[in-house]
Amino acid sequence: MKNILQHLRSAAVALALAAPLAASAADISLLNVSYDPTRELYQDFNAAFAKYWKAKTGDNVTIKASHGGSGKQGRAIIDGLEADVATLALAYDIDALYEKGKLIPKDWQKRLPHNSSPYTSTIVFLVRKGNPKNIKDWDDIARPGISVITPNPKTSGGARWNYLAAWAYGQRKFNNDESKTRDFIGKILKNVPVLDSGARGSTTTFVERGIGDVLLAWENEAFLAQKELGPDKFEIVVPSLSILAEPPVTVVDKVVNKRGTRAVAEAYLQYLYTEEGQEIAAKNYYRPTLESVAKKYEKNFPKLNLVTVDSEFGGWQKAQKTHFSDGGTFDQIYLK
């Protein structure tokens, strides 16, 4: 009995001593559901933010990240994956969080600068060293006998950017003759031997499995592949025209309200726009939107003629419906 009392007294003292510590440092966790090629970006960024948040508030924040094809990731959130923040490849996939799940407000894109896209990218070609098939522009990847690696637009955001960039090129080349553009896209798709579900899968197909002559890739992914495997193995080819890819970010309101993580989730996304956040993006080959950082890294990013989804396709909703929804141009061409 005496022992029990002693234990209870010790426990009470320990609790009393620990209480102020517990009150001063909360342990918070966030889940960032992102698209395929952002693994390295968010690995660096999450560490930096955790350090920043600890210094600012004293709280420990642990950020978990989930990566996959952008469309697939969006559907997972709608189906119940409790993402505090979504950092997907394109606005349509985040729009779906409102349209299909009412997880965010309709005007989510107005909450952060640059339509909630803290960094941008574009689509380039990654070819094997020496460019043995002499691929220089979109026409070349439509040539017979060229093996083109690109993921499936049904599941991958990157693939949809690839498709739209090729479409925009075709429309210009054929003076907006849609039928000729379709033929052109058909020739490219005919050259695709494997459709991966996400951009990282396609990189694996091209880089690790040695399949194909050209990979249609996010610019950051192409740079990363070159950096990881050496410029002696791959070269980046910048086409004459490409598309400005604007991967957006948002807090998932229903989740942060439920989990009580709104403050830290909002701070997390805002930190992407800070100088430090933009530096991390640039170092991971994403084009920064903060002018000072963009200027600092401008030599790293080739200048090219870029179209936007809004100007060329009337926004993502229209582009999705026309090209990627069931029965859209992709289905019509690919399944023909």
């Binding site: 093996s147 031997p193 494997v194 991966d196 579900s197 899968g201 197909t205 499995r209 040695g210 399949i211 194909g212």
Partner: peptide, 17 residues
């Protein structure tokens, strides 16, 4: 060689799916 690699990759993707 490319055909074989493609077939293998397709099998790999099918297994992942």
């Amino acid at each position: 060689d490319q055909k074989i690699r493609v077939l293998e990759r397709k099998n790999e993707i099918a297994a992942e799916d």
